[in-house]
Design a protein around this nucleic acid. Structure first.
Lengths: 110, 110
DNA sequence: AATTAATATGAGCATATACTCATATAGTTG
DNA sequence: CAACTATATGAGTATATGCTCATATTAATT
């Protein structure tokens, strides 16, 4: 966030939208699968255990947010992570949550 | 995100929840105000231009997520950021969006 | 051209949550 | 204790979005 000037309302909405896109477990599962590399829809369906229709919708959401790229090859469509910040974002959150839970656990430890 | 083992479903839900808490412009505005330091509810109401009831609810959400701390002093309640990762998260997203928009703008430039 | 395979999408339902208004609670002061 | 101030919360409404089922689209194959 700005160290100097505050963000405009429009900028805040964009930031919020970015966080909202990441706020679905199924989409995180898709991203997690894609961290290993490019995959097509069917592979993602199998990997995540979701339905084809639902996965397709989530992939659309991620694509429109420019978090993943779409490459068509014959009948298949391959998706891949195209925003390098995603991994860092997830790692930051995981680290923060881990610390938080550890601290809470410590309140009981003796 | 895990470089080795994938996150469990429960962990993914926690991560998604953390992102969801950050996915509201008004909450981001509150956090932005709090980056400058501890503030009470009334000050935050004035700073953000929201209603008292709404701000109070958002502060509750942020508190329950352990992103901000709550300190009561007489009639007033002071809130402060207590999770250092928030600033980095917001900066990462802003940087990513900025790069994205710059790139899109470049498609038109000549 | 007809069939098959991979992916996308329209429609409808269910749920979550942001917002408002009114009121409750907690603490202070006369 | 009564009046006041700061904050929280119950109830209700509106909107957004995730999910599913069925079907559409696109591309390959025979």
């Amino acid at each position: 966030m700005a160290r100097k000037a505050p963000l405009t309302d429009e900028a805040l909405e964009h930031v919020a939208r970015r966080f909202a896109v990441l706020a679905e477990p199924m989409r995180l599962r898709l991203l997690q699968a894609l961290f290993a590399g490019e995959m097509n829809v069917n592979a993602l369906v199998e990997e995540t255990g979701g339905t084809q229709a639902n996965i397709s919708r989530h992939l659309q959401t991620l694509t429109q947010a420019h978090l993943i790229s779409r490459r068509k090859e014959g009948l298949q469509v391959f998706y891949a992570i195209c925003d390098p910040s995603i991994l860092k974002l997830c790692e930051l959150v995981c680290g923060s949550l881990e610390k938080q839970f550890t601290k809470q656990a410590g309140a009981f430890a003796r």
